[in-house]
Design a protein around this nucleic acid. Structure first.
Lengths: 206, 206
DNA sequence: CTAAATAGTGAATTGTGAATCACTAATCCA
DNA sequence: TGGATTAGTGATTCACAATTCACTATTTAG
């Protein structure tokens, strides 16, 4: 049966979304043109009307992920002006996003990143760098406002922030969801807070 | 030229080591029987004298990694009896191991883990679980001795410990070693210490 | 020293997945 | 309405990687 004709613009989005879904289900390694086409409802060769090759599809996936990740940071910055609150909110959003969208860790950790053309690696690096930079911004601001300890090194702290999210995602993937990522985030947050916040000794009583 | 005959026992080790090396260089995805055989100095088909198939080679690699990771924990426990010191020492060893042996993150984070036969996933899960369990042990002991806060949840803390290592390894891989993992570990350790240690308020202020 | 056994070889088989192409059907627009 | 453009199709090509296999060279034991 012949598929309905759809304008390239839209098909591209469908294809990228399909690829993202499939990655979430089976990982990048198993991602095939045939699989994507099937999911979109067209024949494999039709896909080449919209993308030059598989690599270009992957590029699209990366751009989408970048948009979502950075979108979270932007959203959080609008929501409140308290850096610590921003971080907590970001943690929650990010973990929710990961647990709903398992494709992201697959893409970021995939060793295809290392195998593929070098610019793919660079793109992943850029996404991570942008994410870390956003967090460092927040931390620096918190330091200026005095709610975050001055002796915290923003870069190190941003990597540690990532460290609350990344292992949880990996463990959750590997262990078939035994770990509830958002729940874990809630548990870890107070610990992280203790790392960086500038509590003046006596304030913490619950 | 014909390769020297070597006893299976030894060849198996050579093959596993070659696979580990190659994974470190090009990632799991690009790992091929041809590549391994070449590196060992035999012809591809010869490899099948020693392993049933590629999957079995991967199994061997996983076992080797497990041995090394758990070996680090055992070593650290022998070295000192102070839990906090054990953790710091473990952090140092583990990061050194990762920066020398880039294959490990490739294997553990590879999405091939999700694609491959389900028991491969289970094996990776087991390695991570064993590692986390080791850390939890140390933490629990620290709590009994009073040097680690009682309100710390061992599992959460162990994941966070992993969080000091894992993101650093990934960033280092992606960014072509811009981040020096062991150096980063040194930076982050004091922060982690603040998370879990039971300093009685007034001892460290600068 | 010789015959199992053990390990290594190259050719052939098989499977898979990406990409190309000539062709067809739908849509656009003048 | 009718030609040009755009998107979809199926057959096919190409490359590559995992195995298998009949055969050969080398050890090792009796």
């Amino acid at each position: 049966m012949r598929a309905k004709k759809v304008k390239t613009e839209l098909r591209r989005e469908q294809i990228i979304q399909a690829a993202l879904d499939l990655i979430g289900i089976q990982g990048i390694q198993a991602l095939s043109i045939v699989g994507i086409a099937e999911r979109v409802g067209i024949v494999p060769s039709a896909l080449y009307r919209h993308f030059k090759n598989k690599e270009e599809v992957l590029d699209g996936v990366l751009m989408l992920i970048k948009k979502r990740v950075l979108g979270n940071i932007a959203h959080v910055k609008k929501k409140t002006s308290d850096p610590l609150e921003q971080l907590q909110c970001l943690l929650i959003r990010q973990t929710r996003m990961l647990s709903e969208n398992r494709a992201i860790p697959h893409v970021v950790f995939s060793d295809g990143v290392y195998t593929g053309p070098p610019d793919r690696k660079a793109k992943v690096a850029e996404i991570m760098a942008a994410f870390l930079a956003g967090i460092q911004d927040i931390i620096t601001e918190g330091q200026q406002m005095g709610t975050i300890r001055g002796d915290v090194i923003p870069f190190a702290a941003s990597v540690m922030f990532l460290g609350m999210i990344m292992p949880a995602a990996v463990i959750s993937n590997v262990s078939e969801g035994i770990v509830d990522i958002p729940a874990h985030a809630e548990t870890v947050w107070p610990m992280f807070l203790r790392c960086i916040s500038n509590e003046k000794k006596d304030q913490d009583h619950n």
